[in-house]
């Protein structure tokens, strides 16, 4: 091991050529490989059904609850195979998923939701109270709503609750699935700013699945683009944001001016990513 002048280079999570099959017949991922460096923010981009959520769930081992299975490849976290662990073990090792659509416990208050996140922690009452204070520090809005039932809070507050709940387990890596879904642009910015803050100050790495390509690339260091269960392109976030194909396919910007959707579809059929 050489000295690490740039801690961003050490690989925290590596996904190696995984294949995922649902219900024993539906092939969803066909050889996805990616890496998340320690302390990095990596974006996983792609259209609906490309396999972003499946990739995250394969890592967090929530696939079984969806009747999916990793049939090939390996997933390593800090050099150890984790693809046979239970989600509970994985949370103990510091990998926590924030699911798409928030999934707050509607009948629990915001604070109770946060406390469920501390289930795996052995710490004393004081430790947990301290962790709670930290979450409230990053999400002051949750402190105001602490006694409200999560089911009655706004979408943005639920997203904050879901991220805060994951933070309570003191993870070193958070798998964040579609945090912008159904939220006002202003709230999306607020949440991404907090993600950046957590990354910078708490050194939490993020693997971020997003459809909102522009926002995701603005906050991530690196990005992977998935299509039909394959990684079709990857690169530094800034490079991807300036890439002509990415611009055209995901941002709707093109050098040839605006085109009608029908043309884009046609064009897209002709020009495949891997062609």
């Amino acid at each position: 091991m050489s000295a690490q002048p740039d801690p961003g280079r050490q690989v925290a999570l590596s996904v190696n050529n995984i294949e995922v099959i649902y219900d024993h017949v539906i092939l969803v991922l066909r050889g996805v490989s990616l890496e998340v460096p320690d302390g990095g923010i990596v974006a996983l981009l792609g259209a609906n059904g490309a396999g972003k959520t499946t990739t995250l769930k394969a890592i967090s081992n929530l696939l079984h609850a969806e009747r999916g299975e990793v049939t090939k490849g390996a997933i390593e976290f800090r050099g150890q195979r984790v693809d046979r662990l239970t989600p509970n073990d994985l949370v103990r090792r510091g990998v926590c998923q924030v699911m798409e659509g928030r999934h707050c416990f509607a009948h629990l208050t915001v604070e109770e939701n946060l406390l469920t996140g501390a289930f795996t922690r052995k710490g004393s009452r004081a430790d947990i109270a301290q962790a709670l204070e930290k979450v409230y520090h990053y999400f002051p809005r949750l402190k105001e709503r602490r006694a409200s039932l999560a089911g009655y809070t706004s979408g943005g507050e639920q997203q904050m609750t879901a991220i805060g709940r994951a933070l309570m387990a003191q993870p070193t890596m958070i798998l964040l699935d579609e945090p912008s879904m159904g939220l006002a642009p202003q709230i999306v910015e607020e949440i991404f700013a907090i993600v950046g803050d957590l990354n910078a100050r708490e050194r939490v790495s993020f693997l971020l699945a997003e459809q909102n390509t522009m926002v995701a690339l603005r906050h991530a260091n690196y990005g992977y683009i998935l299509e039909n269960g394959r990684v079709v392109m990857d690169g530094q976030a800034s490079d991807l944001a300036n890439n002509e194909d990415v611009k055209e396919f995901y941002l709707g910007l093109s050098t040839a001016g605006r085109r009608s959707f029908r043309d884009v579809k046609h064009y897209r059929r002709r020009k495949r990513w891997l062609a």
Partner: peptide, 13 residues
């Protein structure tokens, strides 16, 4: 009782 999968995700066995 509220949400099986979310409970799994936060590490509840």
């Amino acid at each position: 009782a509220d949400d099986h999968q979310a409970a799994l995700a936060v590490g509840i066995p």
